[in-house]
Each structure stands twice: as structure tokens, then as C-alpha cells.
């Protein structure tokens, strides 16, 4: 509802944001597509011509591909599982009456604000170092042999670090969702004779359904592209090379831009599949 005048003003004012984002999306995307069909090695001859779908085939048939897919799935799946399950429990705990709720909330949220490079380094050195790390001290205290976390259990270690970073996010969103639950619903269920476990399963959990879906989707998008945590801890070694990191290595370390670009196109397609689901949910919410 507005006038022609304000509608044209609106179009004009939306212009800069739309044009910038359109450029930001299209230009690199088209360039990536272009490179992905070329043999392009900047340090070894540069542009060596069109090679069709060779890069796409080579990327998926290389020995590093399937391990990187499984590493990605383990990291994303593991972090999602840990953050959602612990997040729900923590959110319910934080929703209980207690003293100092605000402070506990702050303590729980804090890791989310820690720079990824900082958290990765702190965990790598001060906790997971097999000689001087706190875990090593702890293991020795109980007479056990300290674990070489980042080489012997690299994926587990990365999942642990990343879960620590994302647990606050899941908790915060689930807590917000729990708090929006109408307490009369719970009281009605109580009047109807539902014991606490049943109230959790039949009322709280369904109410959290949407929030959990959102947490899963948003985290998936971010987790698919985690980079710094791997960059500073293992550098992709010891089986911790994810799809993102593999592409990064192809492009910058081995300077095979064509191959890396093909990988990039795969990553873009993958992210878009996840994004599609997220959009559905957010879009529905827009109508409300």
C-alpha cells in the first residue's frame, strides 16, 4: 500500500544492496564455473585450455575425495548431534528456577564469541598438547598414557573444539524457543495427569521442533565451511581434511585452480541443497 512515488523511491533505495549482492554472487560464481572447465595452473603454465568435465571427474575420483567427504560428514554430523542433544538439555536446565541465572547464561554463551583461531589454538596447545596440555596432566594424574589428540584422534578433537564453539548457539536458540512456550499448555498437561517425561516428549519436544530444525540448518551451513579450526590445528593432516579444506589446498597450496574450482562448484551445490530447506522455513515465517 503506497504511492507510485514511494514505490519508485523504494526501488531506488533497494538498488545499492541488490546490485552489490548480485555482483558479489554472480561474478565469482561465473568465474568459478569458467575455471572449472579449464586446465588452469597459475604457476605451471597458466591457462592450458578447455577440458570439459575433466576437473569434475578428477575431483571426485581423486584418492582424497571420499576421505574428505567422510571427514566432512563426521564433523558436521558429530557437531550437530552433540550441540543439539546437549543444547536441548542445557536449555531445559537453564529454564529452571535458580540463583544467578543471568550469570550462568553468560558463562554458557561466552565460547560463541571467541575468535575461531583463538579457540582452536587454545584447545590445541593448552588442552590437547600431549606433553604440556591439561588433558595430558589429567591423564598422567590417573596413571594413563597421554593421548596424541590431534594426530591419533584428530576428527574427534576437531568435533570437540567445534562443538564447544557452537553449543552456545544451539543452547541460546533452544532456550529462547522454550521460553516462548506458553506455560499454560504445560499446566494444562499437568492437570491432565501427564508426568514430566511425558510432558517433555509430547509438549516441549514438538514445540522445539522448529527451533531444532533451524539450528540444524544454520549450523550445517556454517559447519560445511569451517576452516580456521582445521587450518591452525592439523592443517588438514591426519584424516581431518574436509571438503572445504581440500578445495582450499587444491586452489592455494597446489595452485590447481581448475580442479579446485570444480570442487567449489560441488560445494556450492551441496550448500544450496541445505539452503533450500532453510529458505522454506524462513520463508514460511515471513508470511506470519
Amino acid at each position: 500500500m503506497a504511492t507510485q512515488h514511494s514505490r519508485s523511491a523504494a526501488r531506488l533505495m533497494m538498488g545499492p544492496a541488490v546490485v552489490l549482492l548480485l555482483g558479489w554472487m554472480l561474478v565469482p560464481l561465473l568465474m568459478t564455473l569458467y575455471f572449472s572447465f579449464k586446465s588452469y595452473l597459475p604457476l605451471r603454465g597458466g591457462d592450458l585450455g578447455w577440458i570439459g568435465f575433466d576437473n569434475y571427474v578428477r575431483f571426485v575420483t581423486s584418492s582424497a575425495f571420499w576421505p574428505s567427504v567422510s571427514a566432512t560428514l563426521i564433523i558436521v554430523g558429530g557437531v550437530l548431534l552433540i550441540t543439539v542433544v546437549l543444547g536441548v538439555l542445557l536449555a531445559i536446565l537453564l529454564d529452571q528456577p535458580m540463583w544467578g541465572q543471568g550469570i550462568v547464561r553468560i558463562l554458557v554463551i561466552a565460547p560463541f564469541f571467541v575468535m575461531p583461531t583463538v579457540s582452536a589454538l587454545v584447545w590445541k596447545n593448552m588442552f590437547m598438547d600431549p606433553v604440556n596440555g591439561l588433558f595430558a596432566h589429567l591423564w598422567k594424574f590417573f596413571g594413563a598414557q597421554p593421548v596424541e589428540w590431534l594426530s591419533d584422534a584428530s576428527l574427534f578433537s576437531i568435533v570437540l573444539i567445534v562443538s564447544w564453539q557452537w553449543l552456545p548457539f544451539a543452547t541460546l536458540i533452544l532456550l529462547t524457543a522454550i521460553q516462548s512456550l506458553d506455560s499454560e499448555q504445560l499446566e494444562a498437561a499437568e492437570m491432565d495427569g501427564a508426568p514430566p517425561p511425558k510432558r517433555f516428549v509430547f509438549i516441549i519436544l514438538p514445540h522445539l521442533g522448529r527451533a531444532i530444525t533451524i539450528v540444524v540448518l544454520i549450523q550445517t551451513i556454517f559447519l560445511l565451511s569451517i576452516f580456521a579450526e582445521i587450518f591452525v590445528t592439523t592443517g588438514g593432516a591426519f584424516g581431518s581434511r574436509t571438503l572445504t579444506y581440500l578445495i582450499f589446498q587444491r586452489v592455494l597450496e597446489s595452485q590447481n585452480v581448475g580442479l579446485g574450482s570444480a570442487g567449489g562448484v560441488y560445494a556450492i551445490i551441496l550448500a544450496n541443497i541445505v539452503a533450500l530447506f532453510l529458505m522454506r522455513i524462513v520463508g514460511k515465517n515471513l508470511d506470519a
Partner: peptide
Amino acid sequence: KDILLWMLSTKMLPAVGVLYPIYLI
């Protein structure tokens, strides 16, 4: 609504997929 959702979708473009083009630019 479409514009808003489209803007959101640009956020989901994996950075690594466009690393080299941005590097070149």
C-alpha cells in the same frame, strides 16, 4: 519476500567455492 530470501541465499555461498576468483579480482 523473494528478494529477502535471495539475499539470504548469497550468505550461503561457500566461501571456498569462490576463493580463487576473489583472489584474482
